[in-house]
């Protein structure tokens, strides 16, 4: 009668353990790479009801962010009203089919169903005004919107992303005049980190790192 197990079976437990280690490594790498907003959210560029191009309006015409997002430094983020579009488009490209829903919205008062790109969970209480009024530039979280034909999420907007800046704000602050200039350098880039730290001290910037800073 031959042996029930061949001699090579002695190595089997070791090989199995080794294989499980390899699988664990591959799985960990996969989860780390794929199961974070850096993969699931960055690059999200939904098709909007109106093919509005920020590259055209901001990059080319040089409109300020606040021309349309006018409540950003007082009451928070807001998508502009149809009237804001019609300020110019009552005279420019008045017959463009791309603007049909803007004209309809302006006449009827029914909002344009824009698709929300940068979505925060409901338990995150983010306020734009406190950020833009104290030196956090739009570009820090939204990327170079002035070069985008279609608004695309560029930063993960995860809690880690928020905390990176809340823990080390000096590296990312801008002069107040540069906050809405998406091509401007940070203070640290332009004048060095020491000047940026001085700015943090002068403006008494102390971003909260406690849970209740952002969660209620």
């Amino acid at each position: 009668m031959p042996a029930l197990f061949q001699k090579s079976a002695n190595r089997l437990p070791l090989q199995l353990i080794l294989y499980l280690c390899v699988v664990a490594c591959v799985a960990t790498a996969g989860v780390t790479y794929y199961m974070t907003p850096k993969y699931t959210r960055v690059g999200y560029a939904p098709i909007q009801p109106v093919p509005y191009s920020h590259a055209k309006h901001v990059g080319e015409l040089g409109l300020d962010c606040r021309y349309c997002h006018s409540t950003i430094d007082t009451a928070g983020a807001a998508v502009p009203t149809a009237q804001t579009c019609m300020n110019c488009h009552s005279q420019i490209r008045t017959a463009s089919p791309a603007l049909a829903s803007v004209r309809a919205s302006f006449e009827t008062g029914r909002p344009i169903p824009w698709v929300h790109v940068h979505v925060m969970p409901s338990f995150v209480y983010f306020d734009h005004s406190v950020h833009v009024n104290r030196g956090v530039g739009c570009v820090e979280c939204h990327g170079k919107v002035n070069e985008m034909d279609v608004v695309t999420q560029r930063k993960p907007m995860s809690m880690g992303f928020c905390l990176d800046c809340h823990r080390a704000p000096a590296e990312r602050m801008r002069e107040r005049k540069d906050v809405f200039n998406l091509d401007s350098p940070t203070i640290a880039e332009a004048k060095g980190i020491l000047v940026a730290r001085e700015f943090i001290r002068e403006w008494k910037i102390s971003p909260p790192q406690s849970c209740s800073g952002c969660h209620r």
Binding site: Y33, K38, T40, A45, P46, S122
Partner: peptide, 23 residues
């Protein structure tokens, strides 16, 4: 990472499996 896509982002921890207060 970083590819462009138009479909709504996939939720890694969907509400039906991990009910919470996200939405």
């Amino acid at each position: 990472r970083g590819r462009r896509f138009v479909q709504p982002p996939v939720d890694v921890f969907p509400e039906w499996a991990f009910p919470g207060m996200k939405y």
